[in-house]
């Protein structure tokens, strides 16, 4: 079982998202992340889909997606150099002054932005690869009593200069 990524161009129509999501539930595929938004052409949406599967199932997922009339193109991003980011908000509550200082240091190291601030709370706004977000959440969970997490799911685009991931 490996984590894999698919980019999917679909018709920007009512019910298409439900259809794609329904494929994953109906056929028991492991959907880990799904994001969708319109593209430069407003009649077309692009989805970024993260799945956990073995090779055979992954092949089957791509084929099943391709069968849909509303699916314009399926792109397997598994071995494609790409830029992939996930937006993450973390609100850390019940902070002492010391906690707040530490949070600024963490933000600095993780290269995330402190986007809001109160007497005993700090809001971190992160734009990192999903795995890095996992690590940040793990760290904050370890050191702070009350955190609130909102994640947006990953979006990905193929790289221009082939090397970066």
């Amino acid at each position: 079982m490996e984590k894999r990524w698919i980019a999917l161009y679909v018709e920007n129509e009512v019910g298409v998202l439900a259809k794609i999501a329904g494929l994953f539930s109906g056929k028991s595929y492991n959907l880990e992340s799904l994001t969708v938004g319109t593209t430069e052409d407003k009649t077309i949406s692009r989805m970024t889909i993260g799945v956990k599967s073995d090779d055979i199932t992954f092949e089957q997922i791509k084929k099943q997606l391709n069968r849909f009339v509303e699916v314009i193109k399926v792109i397997d991003l598994t071995d494609v150099p790409m830029h992939r980011k996930e937006i993450l908000f973390v609100k850390v509550k019940n902070c002492t002054t010391h906690d707040k200082t530490e949070l600024f240091q963490i933000a600095n190291v993780f290269n995330v932005h402190v986007s809001d601030y109160g007497k005993d709370s700090v809001l971190l706004e992160c734009m990192l690869p999903d795995r890095r977000n996992d690590e940040l959440i793990q760290l904050l969970n370890l050191h702070f009593k009350t955190i609130e997490v909102v994640r947006g799911g990953s979006v990905a685009i193929e790289s221009i200069s082939t090397s970066c991931i």
Partner: peptide, 16 residues
């Protein structure tokens, strides 16, 4: 009906 039959037909659409 389009929602109900989504997984059991080749294609379905409501004319809007």
């Amino acid at each position: 009906i389009i929602g109900i039959t989504r997984n059991i037909c080749k294609y379905g659409i409501t004319v809007r």
